[in-house]
């Protein structure tokens, strides 16, 4: 039986026990388009396509994924702001769209969209090469005080970079923070010892984690990761650094209340779907449902924090 048939069979089984489509509330449109700024095969794209597979039977609609790439999300935001607010189009939110809004000040920003709900947290971790002497953050800081070391972040403007800058500040060390054009390039530099530690998403280093070539040093969330219970959080180790890479959805402004209600029921139900749970747990995504009422303020707070960070660093105007 192939994967797709499994999924179909499974959703049929779920329907039978009554957890399936919310038959009581029919969705107002037949096709839901999920827009992402990432190109096919990229992080958000894979997230959406996986989500779409399970979402379609849950909502009882067709779900298609549309890649509106270009301008680091600026184009996707402009596209979204012009769409009807009837529940037919949603955008995959990640910290990127906040960064782009703040950095390039496009015509349409995150403020022109209405956050719907959050779905996942993509946990960020600090890792190092298996052969490195660094076992804990403490070791890394100590090493940094003894000689010049460098830490790596995937991109110059990213949550990873922000986390490292925070760590540098709270630990009071002077290290070089090197950014790359993607998590993969950076990982090679952690593996060959150019970088003492790197920060990235579990997804990017999963293969090396499994083969034991890299070792996790700390996680950067508020709680330990279920898949890696032995890895302490940075906070536990005494360094007040915490970031939350969110993955959620947003729509055009003025989403109708009934659409929001359906999503608020559908997403938690989806996160409990055993087949989906298996898929996303393997990818080390943490279910992180945030209802509509809280998601807007969450995004605003996140944006305000990022804005002050960018101003402090002198990236944007005071």
């Amino acid at each position: 039986m192939n994967r797709r048939m499994q999924a179909v069979a499974l959703s049929a089984a779920i329907m039978a026990i009554g957890l399936g489509p919310l038959a009581a509330q029919t969705y107002p449109v037949k096709t839901v388009t999920l827009v992402t700024h990432s190109s096919p095969g990229g992080g958000s794209d894979v997230f959406l396509r996986e989500l779409a597979k399970y979402l379609a039977p849950e909502l009882g609609v067709d779900v298609v994924v549309d890649n509106v790439s270009g301008g680091s999300g600026a184009k996707a935001m402009a596209h979204m702001a012009a769409q009807p607010a009837d529940g037919s189009v949603f955008y995959a939110t990640t910290p990127t769209f906040i960064y782009t809004s703040l950095l390039s000040k496009p015509e349409k920003t995150y403020k022109d969209l209405e956050p719907l709900v959050n779905v996942f947290e993509d946990p960020e971790v600090i890792y190092t090469a298996a052969s490195s002497p660094v076992q804990t953050i403490e070791d890394a800081i100590k090493g940094a005080k003894e000689q010049r070391v460098s830490w790596g972040a995937a991109n110059p403007n990213s949550l990873e970079r922000q986390a490292l800058e925070q760590l540098k500040k709270v630990a009071g060390v002077d290290v070089g923070i090197v950014s790359y054009e993607g998590g993969g390039d950076m990982m090679l530099n952690v593996l060959n010892g150019t970088l003492q530690i790197g920060v990235g998403e579990i997804q990017e280093i999963r293969s090396q984690l499994d083969s034991g070539e890299v070792r996790l040093v700390a996680s950067l969330g508020d709680e330990r990761l279920a898949n890696y219970p032995d890895v302490p959080t940075a906070k536990e180790s005494g360094y007040d650094v915490s970031v939350r890479k969110f993955r959620g959805l947003a729509g055009p402004k003025g989403l109708p209340a009934d659409v929001i209600a359906i999503w608020e029921k559908a997403i938690p139900a989806l996160l409990e779907n055993p087949e989906y749970k298996k898929a996303y747990s393997e990818a080390s995504l943490l279910p992180d449902f945030v209802p509509h009422a809280e998601y807007g303020p969450f995004i605003d707070t996140f944006a305000a924090e990022t804005e002050s960070y960018l101003k402090e660093a002198g990236i944007t105007e005071q």
Binding site: G71, S72, K75, P156, R161, I315
Partner: peptide, 20 residues
């Protein structure tokens, strides 16, 4: 486009198309 080290904008004249 985006500066590779600091992440600031260079010569983008406010066009998001030039960010990358």
């Amino acid at each position: 486009g985006t500066d590779p080290v600091t992440g600031g904008n260079r010569f983008t004249f406010g066009y998001p198309d030039l960010l990358g």
